[in-house]
Design a protein around this nucleic acid. Structure first.
Lengths: 154, 154
DNA sequence: TTTTTTGCAAAGTCTTTGCATGTCA
DNA sequence: TGACATGCAAAGACTTTGCAAAAAA
């Protein structure tokens, strides 16, 4: 008995269809790139996609990332002054610690913030997106340097 | 007995002098504007300063804000994709809660984060700047809307 | 008088948009 | 077919930089 070959639609396809939107190769490739890269700026996503499909334009990447974010399959974080980085929405297992002095990015376990996010929600009704939590300050190295130079000034 | 009129140098003046830098009217005005405005983008600071000194240019504002930040008298936060906002460095009494859906900005008491920031420092040696802590998620209103629309989809 | 700072304008990033063409359903 | 999506190029927002003129010390 011969079964027709019906490819299982991906989660992305389903999300698009349910909105009456189209599943295009570009959208699939851009989503794949975000998954593979883990974190990436729009530019990096574009370069990755262009390895396979060289004509995909940066503006399509921007439009698609915005769309994917609306669909809830990716999210973005501003790690610094530069371009934001995009990551899969379920890639929510760590917090970014951005050093404002040297630019180094540490990662912390998202569970550290669980209690904190609950308090915020309790007090303000604000539902924090932990994957979007980027914290700024001084990394261990730079905090040490500042400490040392403060000491030498005494 | 006649005393010579020696204006007391401001904290800003002292900070500048200690670095061999010059105290110019522009720098004082820009610092004042940040203090008065509380939060402001470079553009807003510039407009405020221009009410008093119309020739001050935006590039001077950018250069000065960067300088003031180095001196530790102001800091900045990225509240969204747009321009960063600057505030006095000692204005560290609240956390920004940025709604990623509607852009609304709530404020929460910085003490809510005290325990959290201590844990981060304990685990990673990372010294968090609470004034620079901006949290992204859904405000009470938008979280409610999403909840409601999720319910209607069932 | 010397060095720093400013204002202007031009250039640089990063992002969005208009529109003709192309494509999915 | 008809609505939606893409690619391109141009425009936009935000920021930085080079340089001659102006100002602080």
């Amino acid at each position: 008995m011969e079964r027709p070959r019906v490819p299982t639609p991906s989660a992305l396809d389903l999300a698009l269809r349910s909105r009456g939107l189209r599943a295009t190769p570009q959208r699939r490739l851009i989503n794949d790139a975000v998954v593979v890269l883990g974190h990436a700026t729009p530019e990096q996503v574009c370069l990755r996609v262009q390895e396979v499909a060289p004509t995909v334009s940066l503006s399509t990447v921007y439009r698609t990332l915005e769309l994917l974010e609306e669909l809830g399959v990716v999210s973005h974080t501003h790690l610094g002054h530069g371009a934001p980085t995009y990551h899969p929405a379920d890639h929510a297992d760590h917090i970014h610690l951005v050093c404002t002095r040297c630019g180094h990015i540490d990662e912390a376990d998202v569970r550290l913030a669980a209690e904190f996010t609950e308090r915020i929600t309790g007090d303000n009704g604000f539902v924090l997106d932990p994957a979007h939590l980027s914290l700024h300050g001084l990394c261990a190295g730079c905090a040490g340097v500042r400490e040392a130079s403060a000491a030498s000034r005494r």
